[in-house]
Design a protein around this nucleic acid. Sequence first.
DNA 1: TTGTAAGCGTTATCAG
DNA 2: CTGATAACGCTTACAA
Lengths: 361, 361
Amino acid sequence: MPEGPRRPRRGATTIEEVARAAGVSRQTVSNALNAPQRVRPETLERVNAAIRELGYQPDQSARSLRSGARRTIGYLAPVDDPLDPNPLMAGFLEALVDAAGAAGQRVLLFRPGQGTADPVAAIDELVAARQVDGLVLADVLHEDVRIAHVARLGVPFVSFGRTGPGVPQHWVDIGNEAAMAEVVRHLAALGHRRIGYLGAAEELPWMAARRAGFLTEARRLGLSAVATGGAETAAAGSVVASVRALLRGPDRPTAFAAGSDLLALDLSEAVRAEGLVVGPGGVAVTGFHDTPLCRHLHPALTSVRLPLRTIAAALVGRLLDQVRGEATPAQGLELPTELVVRGSSGRSGGAQRSGWSGWFG
Amino acid sequence: MPEGPRRPRRGATTIEEVARAAGVSRQTVSNALNAPQRVRPETLERVNAAIRELGYQPDQSARSLRSGARRTIGYLAPVDDPLDPNPLMAGFLEALVDAAGAAGQRVLLFRPGQGTADPVAAIDELVAARQVDGLVLADVLHEDVRIAHVARLGVPFVSFGRTGPGVPQHWVDIGNEAAMAEVVRHLAALGHRRIGYLGAAEELPWMAARRAGFLTEARRLGLSAVATGGAETAAAGSVVASVRALLRGPDRPTAFAAGSDLLALDLSEAVRAEGLVVGPGGVAVTGFHDTPLCRHLHPALTSVRLPLRTIAAALVGRLLDQVRGEATPAQGLELPTELVVRGSSGRSGGAQRSGWSGWFG
DNA sequence: TTGTAAGCGTTATCAG
DNA sequence: CTGATAACGCTTACAA
């Protein structure tokens, strides 16, 4: 006669015990849980009482085995540069877990095995072990092996960030170009006519988009615009120097936008090093991400805030649509950002909302 | 005749197919996986070949249901202040996922349901649904309802951070007092005799410990020390003012330690506002956490680095000991931090390692 | 060493 | 609307 597992089972209540307590069959309890409309109200109430009484929760493994639904989504954490980690990862994860939880899903965090920087193997393992119903990918590149791979596997997935047009897919992203265009308009409205941009890691699509958005909008408004911090200034430590050069050159910009809050910090240091001052009456500076850092600077840093909760909700929604087999055509959603104006630019401390950017195919 | 789940099954290979391909029984495949020493080497090789060939991975749900082992640990994300999020959450999570992965475990992220700030309910759900083998709790308070609750439930758990002596438990923490003591010694070695400390949220044990470590070591060395930023300066925005007051007072400190990198930023602003300069020849400033911010400041910020990977590995190790039922007595492990000396204090850019702090019962 | 049989807790089908 | 029965894929004891 087979024996139970060697590990002492936690005294977890089973559906059987609930059924006994409520004086019904096992099936009725299952129905009460999964198809309440099939159970007579008074029976339902009795069953629910027993469930509450015993603190019953269905065993998720048994449920998954039988139904095929794992009720879990996998989040593949990007392997990021420890020197420049994604400053929003924590906040995004919290939002993701909340959004998933609201939809009755858990979030399983995974990463490529150490040493192996190969995300494809990690994905394969998770999928083969049938641990998740779908995947959320982040920091997606134009040509992303992960996307190509999961698309080939046929696993439901959704990506935070846009990819090239090769693979039809669901994605959610912020309007990086639109965000920087809004920054440019903000600076122009303050009267700045010569503006500068400091970027970094321009091979990353979102960074490239921010720079492009900056330059395009500046051109459209007829401003004099110059960008630095790209490949031409790649050498470490030279970022500040490149900005100082701009500040010493002819047509010195009176305002600078940065591709991140940390770059805005570099920017501020360069400004100070040139004997200038940041803020009203001096050089305007803006950042990106709206990290807590912004509030600790003097003057406080104007920055672009990402709608993390909306992003997470959209990601989860689109992912679960696929999991449920609802045949929504692959499409993208670009969400608007929020420009949070603080002392480093302009006078007031209020916030302006940028416009809705719409749907993309 | 019962039918399979309504969701179209992904064409996942089962143990049966592997057995057929290798010309052995289902059991032999299971043995090859779970007890390879029981299988004749040549058979093992044949089975492994079939496994590789078919890309087989055991269905984790089936495995969990039968064996009781979920191969998953739950991480309860602390509900933190969005204005002052834990700056290390992202890095810690990465380290945790890696450490868990190395031990064959996944990490399930969960949070108290939105609205409900009740972590106990979230824990109950996860445990009742038998989704995890154990729990990792972080940012643990002296009297922590979560600890009391999981201890009562009898679920294996381990905490990042120390709690009161009420409940016997496994914990891992950094030596907050020792870390600040090392900072104080560092400042003293630079010749500073009057030093200040800027803290915040002193009701949090780790913040209180940092302050205490600072004051104790300063007293021990016979330095003149003063701390601010506690409850007495709770009003928002007054932090900088409180430091400026110290800088204007008699016995002006020539060096300041902060309880976090962001507080060090406040500190720097206060120093500058008083017309003083941060760094060698001016006021020395140190931070805590060693966030990327440190490298973007000028001068770069001396800070205390946490051994996140070591912490994560220790947490996972202790947790799995409990899961495996190895009767290790509840005990704590205090890990040393690393003081990373940069331009904001001292001259060199090197790093000093602090000493090993030892084991606690 | 390998094969046989049972059952983990749940949900789906089908007969009452 | 309820109750019996089978099956999801796997691991464990035991027999061969």
